[in-house]
Amino acid sequence: MKFLEDHLPKLMLAPSFIAMLIFVYGFIGWTAWVSLTRSRLLPRYEIEGFIQYERLFSSLRWDTAFTNLFLFGGLFIVISMILGLALAIFLDQNIRAEGAIRTIYLYPMALSMIVTGTAWKWILNPGLGLEAMVQGWGFEGFKFDWLVNPDMAIYTVVLAAIWQSSGFVMALFLAGLRSVDGEIIKAAQIDGIPNWRIYSAIIIPSMAPIFLSAFIVLAHLAIKSFDLVIALTGGGPGFSTDLPATYMFAMAFSRGDIGQAASSAMVMMGVVFTIVVPYLYSELRVKND
């Protein structure tokens, strides 16, 4: 009885601990293992080395998907951060109806990416959407066919993703702006330092941790982006808007190529790992000190 009482906390944690070991770490291990085999339709377990990765990196489709990840991710992260920071600074100027404006900027974050994708697919479709509307206004030569143009379609994904997430970045930065010590700002204002200098020299540098958090969240969203591509472009035209996430899914569930699915998933995992682990490590260390 005493034993039970002493160990009760650990016992309560045990189910989650075991579940995590199996379903997170065990499963990662399984995927890593299978990515080293010749698995096709069914998994095989004889290790054959890195053939799947060789196939992956010599595949044109993966090449597009992997390049798109950095193109899409880079633009999405940079533009969302700039836009979010700008909107946060604008909103920080004693704006009337700030609450209402904030609500409007942030609501897309509550929507499913499938809903977002569906809406933008309709808006951007050349036949009846934006293009047709502007042409109807008399600008006959107006063309906006990014959605069906293989070279430009990936930018529609960027646009929709920014629409969805920039309000959230704004909220993060706004909270950061508000947490800067008011005394310092007041002192600077009394010294006659112009507002833009106060922002660029005092407030923004002190928000470095928030930049980092925003970057981590956005990078994470970018790597996971799957639903948005599926709903907006379906990976097309052709494979032009494929991302690693859609590539993995296609290999796993429609191509029946488990080896490719596993190796592409492991590459995604590697990208997340290089971004998140240093961040988590520093976060946890700071807290333990």
Binding site: F226, F249, M266
Partner: peptide, 8 residues
Amino acid sequence: IPFQVVLL
């Protein structure tokens, strides 16, 4: 973790 890694 990207959930793709546990999907299979």
